[in-house]
Design a protein around this nucleic acid. Structure first.
Lengths: 344, 344
DNA sequence: TTGTACGCGTTATCAC
DNA sequence: GTGATAACGCGTACAA
């Protein structure tokens, strides 16, 4: 592994000073064409690549944005990250993506790491919005931060999703179809989407005139808690005829549970944030959907605007809508007591 | 945004030299306890974080590994990346993850980017193993590279998946169940897994005594080509009674196509590389499975061993097995002419 | 239009 | 056990 060529090697090779090489790389207009061409040829000949570490040290800018997600294999996370990456790349920024595996300790560690990497900004999907240590760490950051769908007591740019309206419409729709007992299954996480949905569920139940005592809410421990929560929910005092389920994994666990307890015919699953492959495979599964790419683009744009100075002033709080797919489809399928439709 | 504290600020604050501060940060054992504690206190007081750019410039080491995937929202990619990240993190390495969106041009761009970032190594999921420009760029890299499941004419460490055995066993199993016409649907990509599977499919067809002229293979253009390919495949001269489908997306497209053409009862879908949420939701879908986490761990370990010097010498070529889930399950479901099982 | 000189924050080296 | 010094590769005043 020979030493990599530096700006000095190129300068020597082209018979110019390092300054001229630097100009060719950064502001070619400042260099006369013949000189420029000589330098460019030398760069190619030597296989020169600017050393980003040295650039970043000199300019205090890394053109890198850190992006923290709780779980890369969770489709919504990946979709948001992917869209953000594309938007950032267009603007000349790179993304440093890390996976906290839902572990606040790893989360804090990554924040420190990203900080020492001198990223220019961070986009954060936190897995616990109540952790004071984490909040303190975030509060100390002196770079732009964009938070995704979390309520933090900090003045930060945030991209929210609107969860309540779609939840209300879905519950109202189910009630109109004759369902009197509903279930709601969510991950046991201290984060805004879960809280918003729980609140909206309770409100919608009341608004629809359903008996609050006959609605069941269960929380699954992250990781392997799904099947457990499903069993609890399906063996409760009241058995719901329709079940709202948050996320692909819990939906899968629900299917297993329904099979296991032989309740497939009695319970209609309604999906929240269920995503492409599964949704296409099972179109009869309806529920609440979000445009993850739009969320990613919005977060990236906010970051770009902060960094470019196009956006100044107080934190922006942007809210993007959710869709109640079920209501849109006129609810032909999810009639009370109906069996879960078959695979096609 | 005040200037960030540097090692010099800490040194002044603690009344020591910068060298001592550096030692406290990197090799605390070299510094006597009282001094060390004074320095650590100063670090905390000032909120000091080492500047990774400066470190990297001085040491020529970034402790960062670049990881290139074609599509982050594709579960296998995400699962491999996640496992690699976890393994690298344990060894003190960070991962810079980028998404090429199946675009060789973006791929080349990212290679240059990662190179200028002076990553210590790269793990690559390429989207086209025949592109000469890309190969040339990779060949010029003077850092360890681990390639994932691609045949490149370059002497690089590679983690392969074994695709052929599982394919052969699956086809043999289907033939034993009475299927005489099979279909194979894959993405139209110039990559090893697709080629291996096509080859093994042809071999297995012959070995099982099936008529090669009555087997159908279709390739879907990346992106939106799925539904098209499904339609082509299902309207072919010969209609297969079982269909092997590569990946979640094509599986979803196949479900749609079967519904659309009203062929659900006549065609049994068999999944290749179908993944958790969907697999759990539809346990009757069987096929070929891989352990993506093992692939990611293996790639990361190879990288770690190269960088630590534990591994030297010629390129390692490691092959990990695939599982033929269907054969394992004794094929109770996928009998010839059977309808696609319902959602539960 | 091009070049000289310096400093960014860190660590390796050598001296004390 | 601790410190002085130089060097990593680059960008930028300033000078020419």
């Amino acid at each position: 592994m020979a030493r990599r060529p530096t700006i000095r090697d190129v300068a020597r090779e082209a018979g110019v000073s390092t300054v001229t090489v630097s100009r060719v790389a950064n502001d070619p207009g400042l260099v006369k064409a013949p000189t420029r061409e000589r330098v460019e040829a030398a760069m190619r000949r030597l296989g020169y690549t600017p050393n980003a570490a040295a650039q970043s040290m000199r300019t205090n800018v890394s053109r890198t944005i850190g992006f923290l997600v709780p779980d890369l294999t969770n489709y919504p996370n990946a979709a948001v990250a992917k869209a953000a990456e594309a938007t950032l790349a267009e603007a000349g920024y790179y993304m440093l993506l890390t996976d906290s595996d839902h572990d606040p300790a790893r989360e804090a560690r990554f924040l420190r790491l990203l900080r020492s990497r001198r990223v220019d900004g961070m986009i954060l999907y936190l897995s616990d919005e109540d952790d004071p240590a984490l909040q303190a760490t975030i509060g100390e950051l002196d770079i732009p931060v964009v938070v995704l769908d979390r309520d933090l007591p900090l003045p930060l740019d945030t991209v929210f999703s609107e969860h309540r309206d779609a939840m209300r419409r879905t519950v109202a729709h189910l009630a109109a179809l004759g369902h009197r007992e509903l279930g709601l299954l969510m991950p046991e996480l201290r984060i805004r989407p879960v809280r918003e949905r729980a609140r909206a569920f309770a409100e919608a139940v009341r608004a629809a005139g359903l008996d609050p005592d006959r609605q069941v809410v269960a929380y699954a421990r992250p990781g392997t808690g799904g099947p457990d929560a499903v069993r609890r929910l399906l063996s409760a005092r009241v058995r719901p005829s329709a079940l709202l389920i948050d996320g692909n994994r819990l939906l899968a666990a629900t299917f297993e549970g329904l099979r296991e307890l032989n309740l497939a015919a009695q319970v209609t699953p309604i999906a929240i944030d269920v995503v492409e492959p599964l949704a296409a495979a099972m179109p009869e599964i309806v529920g609440i959907a979000r445009d993850f790419a739009a969320i990613g683009r919005q977060a990236a744009q906010l970051m770009i605007d902060r960094l470019s100075g196009a956006l100044t002033g107080p934190p922006q709080r942007i809210t993007l809508a959710s869709r109640a797919v079920m209501a849109e489809r006129a609810g032909a399928r999810a009639t009370a007591g109906a069996s879960v439709p078959a695979g096609r």
